[in-house]
Structure formats: structure tokens, C-alpha cells
């Protein structure tokens, strides 16, 4: 069974289309400059509907993680064990992603990581993270 992929509609399609171009971008409020993720229609900080897709530095740290040892979805049966981590980016937003170059035993909260991209299909590229020397 193939891996499940995001539904390419609405703001989610826009988010992943930037990933296909090799850019991690988040919504940034045009009024108060607050970054947000997951995509939403207005800024919960100031109520503004105005925003733009602003490019992330791609640098962050591991906020928390799990090592999935038993696949609970058939699409990941061949992938275990794999690391799914919450990355806190320099812009302040947190995003879930897979750490692709770190043995599970070496993964630590606080570890600096940097975004990369992995093409999954003609339509979808996912952000992934690799260890960084510094943030």
C-alpha cells in the first residue's frame, strides 16, 4: 500500500506547491507579522484576513519526537522504525516532519535540523528534516 498523501486543495495545496519548488513557506500576517501553521483563513493574534506566503529560513530544532516501531497504517509497514518529529522553526511555528538522516537512537530534543524536500508523487513533495551543525 502506498503512503497516504495530503489532499491538494485550498491552502494546503498552496503550502505543498511551495514545497514542490523547494521552498518552505508559512502564512505570515500582513498586519502583525505573526507566522502561522497549519494554514488558516485569518490571524488568531490580531484578526486580520491579510497574509502572504513568507519563506522560512528552514532552520529549526527538534521540539519533540516519537520513533514509530510498529506501523499502525499499512502505508508505513516498510518504513519502520521511523522518526516523526515536531520541528520548531526559527519563525516560531511548529511542523511535523520525518527526520531522514539520523539513527533513531541519536535523535534528541533540541537537536538542530534543517529542511529538505522529498518528492512523493507528481503532485506532492513533502518537507523532511536533516541534522544541522548549527541553527
Amino acid at each position: 500500500m502506498t503512503r497516504p498523501l495530503p489532499a491538494m486543495t485550498g491552502l494546503t495545496a498552496q503550502f505543498y506547491e511551495w514545497c514542490s519548488r523547494g521552498e518552505l513557506r508559512f502564512q505570515r500576517c500582513s498586519r502583525c507579522a505573526t507566522f502561522r501553521h497549519v494554514p488558516r483563513d485569518l490571524c488568531a493574534e490580531c484578526g486580520s484576513f491579510d497574509w502572504e506566503w513568507a519563506r522560512s529560513s528552514g532552520n529549526g530544532t527538534v521540539f519533540t519526537y516519537t520513533i514509530v516501531a510498529r506501523a499502525l497504517h499499512p502505508g508505513f509497514a516498510d518504513a519502520v522504525p521511523y522518526a516523526a518529529a515536531v520541528i520548531e522553526l526559527a519563525e516560531g511555528v511548529r511542523i511535523l516532519g520525518n527526520i531522514v538522516d539520523c539513527p533513531p537512537g541519536e535523535l534528541r530534543i533540541g537537536m538542530p535540523v534543517r529542511v529538505d524536500f522529498e518528492r512523493q508523487s507528481d503532485a506532492v513533495t513533502l518537507p523532511v528534516f536533516r541534522r544541522a551543525l548549527t541553527t
Binding site: L72, I95, L96, G97
Partner: peptide
Amino acid sequence: ARDYYLPYGLSAPPQWYALMAQR
């Protein structure tokens, strides 16, 4: 969950909650 969790291999409660426990 479909668009931002599931593609990264998190599909079920023990996986979501493991992230809370680990922190």
C-alpha cells in the same frame, strides 16, 4: 490530521500522544 500528520506516518492515538509524553 490528513494533510499534516498522516503523510508523515502518524495515524493513530498512541503516536500523537507519544509526542506529548516525550516532551
